[in-house]
Amino acid sequence: MLEIKNLQVEVDGKKILKGLTLSIDKGQVHAIMGPNGAGKSTLAHVLAGRAGYTVTGGSVSFEGQDLLALAPEARAAAGVFLAFQYPVEIPGVSTMNFLKTSVNAVRTAHGEKEYDAMDFLKFVRAKTKTLSISDDMLKRAVNVGFSGGEKKRNEVLQMALLNPKLAVLDETDSGLDVDALRIVGEGVTALRSPDNAMLVITHYQRLLDYIVPDRVHVLAGGKIVRSGDAGLALELEKKGYGEFAAEAA
């Protein structure tokens, strides 16, 4: 489904990704772990199409298409979703309006009919319950005044509404209390299916308790320096990234 080959990325002239290769098949969940500043969010942003990153080499293909050639909105329409590490606040735009605009934009791109207000409300209500998102939150401006946990739940809600083929979760488990972690963990697990794939960026094993990965990769110094099965995450949590420091340099 996703083929990243020898990806090299610069930010402001600084090399961040230095030849990253990764391939994810339909139905799989891959986890990426790695020290702060390794380039995990950079990878996530490049996949979503954020400006400011210069791809100096390599390729990314998604279901056979050149993903890097697409505008961000076209990637979303193609089924790529990024749960942001730092969800953005949008004053003046209600969460409900934001969600409806997003879902309808993707439906339009697929040649489907837009939801009207009533149908959309029903559609959202079905998903907000399990994520403990209140109607009050939906009325408020996007992420404005939301707690850290609320922002992350809002990301999972968007993912549930858009039902992407490939979801990239950038530290969706960070800053969550135990209950929120359970809600998010269960929410994400519910979206796993044989038809889609997930790339889970995390620092902790705890989210992986809910969503057991098929593969775990260590990203250090802009490259995947080691890959293994779910056991690798446990090992990393115990030992840290010390042994990769030399390899990354």
């Binding site: 979503a48 199409g49 954020r50 400006a51 505008a71 961000p72 909105e73 990637r75 979303a76 329409a77 979703f81 990024l82 942001f84 969800p87 953005v88 606040e89 949008i90 004053p91 003046g92 735009v93 309006n97 934001f98 605009t101 997003s102 879902v103 934009a105 993707v106 791109a109 401006a141 968007q158 858009l162």
Partner: peptide, 27 residues
Amino acid sequence: DEDALFYLRARGVPERQARELLVEGFV
């Protein structure tokens, strides 16, 4: 806000529409 613009586009909202929504929200 470029970050907000990207956030909307990453959610499938075409650039023009995203700009409109941000201006609407602002004013």
